[in-house]
Amino acid sequence: MRRIDALGIGLGIFIAGGLAYVGLQLFGLDSQQAGIWSQVVLMLGLIGWLGTYVFRAVNQDMTYHQQREDYEQAFFQKRLDELTPEELAKIQAEVEQEKQSQV
């Protein structure tokens, strides 16, 4: 996420809080009650967002993890493409030998 995206999201949340406050006042609540309920709504939204963030972090479903996995796959594929057929056959023989020794 770019810095401008974070600023835009923060501004959007600030505006949403103000709109919730004004909407609650128009609905008939006094300013104190409208302030309390708009804060409750924003806090529930924050807790919900935090929950999704923690869930994605625990499951390693974050952008960083995906980018790192893609990089590692591309790196190993490039290294594999650089091997000569003789080196590739040697590595395959070693892998088969390890499989046989584990069984």
Rank of each mutant, 00 (worst) to 15 (best):
M1P: 04
M1K: 03
M1W: 07
I4M: 12
I4W: 02
A6E: 10
A6N: 05
L7K: 04
L7T: 08
G8L: 15
G8R: 14
G8D: 09
I9T: 13
Y21S: 00
Y21M: 04
V22L: 03
V22G: 00
G23C: 01
G23T: 01
G23Y: 03
G23M: 01
F27W: 06
F27H: 04
F27I: 00
L29S: 00
L29Y: 15
D30E: 02
S31N: 08
S31G: 02
S31D: 11
Q32A: 09
W37N: 12
V40N: 03
V40H: 05
V40L: 10
V41T: 14
V41D: 11
L42R: 07
M43H: 04
L44C: 11
G45Y: 01
L46T: 14
G48T: 11
W49F: 13
W49Q: 06
L50T: 11
T52Y: 15
T52R: 03
A57Y: 08
M62R: 08
M62A: 07
M62Y: 06
T63G: 01
H65N: 06
Q67W: 08
D70A: 15
D70W: 04
D70Q: 15
Y71D: 07
Y71R: 14
E72S: 13
E72L: 13
E72K: 15
Q73R: 13
Q73L: 10
F76H: 14
F76G: 05
Q77G: 05
Q77D: 13
K78V: 03
L80Q: 08
L80C: 00
L80E: 12
D81T: 02
E82Q: 15
E82L: 12
T84M: 02
P85D: 07
E86R: 06
E86L: 00
E87Q: 14
E87L: 09
E87K: 11
L88P: 01
A89I: 04
A89S: 12
I91P: 01
I91D: 08
I91G: 09
I91T: 13
I91H: 04
I91Q: 11
Q92E: 13
A93H: 14
E94T: 03
E96C: 02
E96I: 13
E96M: 13
E96H: 14
E96T: 12
E96R: 15
Q97C: 03
E98V: 09
K99W: 00
K99T: 08
K99M: 04
V103S: 05
V103E: 05
